[in-house]
């Protein structure tokens, strides 16, 4: 599969501060989560991708165009939801989306028609005729999202799109992102602090910290624990079962939800668990491979030394 975005040794320096240092990154079609603490360089990376800033060094390509060249052409094919609450005072919601369509080259009346269509899709009803200054934060987020997709872009770059949304609206927005990705083949780069959002919609995760890529991996790989382990729950407590597991050289840890986390030296851990359960006459209610939590992965990636996982 050809990557949508390829970055090689990208560095960006603002006066004395390095925002990005030697970023090597390939982003493939699909939904990619861009995670990182504040000041990690996410916004700088997005600006580099949009061609809004020149890189200090490095090269790359985006949607098949060389980075820094053909910026207009690239931006024609990108929809961007900025983190900032950017809007033009004095305009109504429909006017903002129509204006965004016009800026992206949709002609006159077609821009207006398309803006209505997209606002319907985003579930913005009669509020579209109200001045944007009177909107709640959540409503402005919806308008920004509508403005980003009005020109039917191939790649969506979403910077904190769910901030300020209530749970229901947040779920609706994530559903829209999923729908666009699955039904219309849109690629999405989702920059957010909200890890459940990433877990909910992304196939791939990039973690950025101090201007460096700390992790670039698919969710499948992230979920796989570093040491073989399973989580299980029992129908009834049996102290003998726990003793036998420990005697077999397995580590047993009780985790929230009444489940047990059993870690072994190799991938035969589940076989051993079944054997011990049979021997101790214990009924296992559920047994599944243990998964890493994204929080843990994120925290360890951010703390880790540079380039450890990139």
């Amino acid at each position: 599969m050809t990557p949508l975005i390829t970055l090689r040794q990208i560095a960006k320096k603002y006066q004395l501060n390095w925002a990005l240092r030697g970023v090597d990154l390939d982003i493939y079609p699909g939904v990619t989560g861009l995670l990182g603490p504040n000041g990690a360089g996410k916004s700088s990376l997005i600006k580099v991708l949009l061609g809004l800033v020149r890189v200090t060094s490095g090269s790359g390509s985006i949607l098949g165009e060389r980075l820094g060249r053909a910026g207009r052409e690239v931006r024609n094919r990108i929809g961007y939801v900025p983190e900032d609450d950017c809007y033009i005072p004095g305009m109504t919601g429909i006017e903002v989306v129509e204006f965004a369509a016009g800026l992206s080259g949709l002609p006159g009346i077609e821009a207006l028609r398309r803006a209505h269509e997209i606002l319907d899709f985003c579930n913005v009803r009669q509020e579209r005729y109200r001045s944007i200054e009177s909107y709640s934060t959540g409503m402005r987020q919806k308008i920004k999202f509508a403005a980003a997709i009005v020109h039917d872009p191939e790649l969506l770059i979403l910077d904190e799109p769910t901030s300020g949304l209530d749970p229901e609206e947040r779920e609706s927005l994530l559903n829209r992102i999923r729908f666009l990705a699955r039904e219309h083949g849109k690629s999405v780069l989702l920059s957010t602090h909200i890890l459940p959002d990433v877990q909910s919609v992304c196939d791939h995760v990039v973690i950025l910290a101090r201007g460096e890529i700390r992790l670039n991996s698919s969710f499948e790989e992230i979920n796989r624990p570093r040491v073989p382990s399973v989580t299980l729950s029992l129908l009834a407590e049996n102290p003998e079962f726990e003793r036998l597991l420990q005697a077999a050289g397995l580590q047993v840890e009780r985790i929230p939800g009444g489940e047990w986390l059993v870690t072994g030296p190799d991938y035969s851990v589940s076989t051993k668990v079944w054997e011990i359960a049979q021997a101790s006459k214990t009924t296992i209610q559920s047994l599944k491979p243990a998964k890493n939590s994204l929080e843990e992965v994120f925290l360890s990636a951010v703390k880790e030394s540079p380039n450890a996982n990139s």
Partner: peptide, 8 residues
């Protein structure tokens, strides 16, 4: 950002 994230 509304302007310059577009082909402007």
């Amino acid at each position: 950002l509304l302007y310059f994230s577009r082909p402007i």
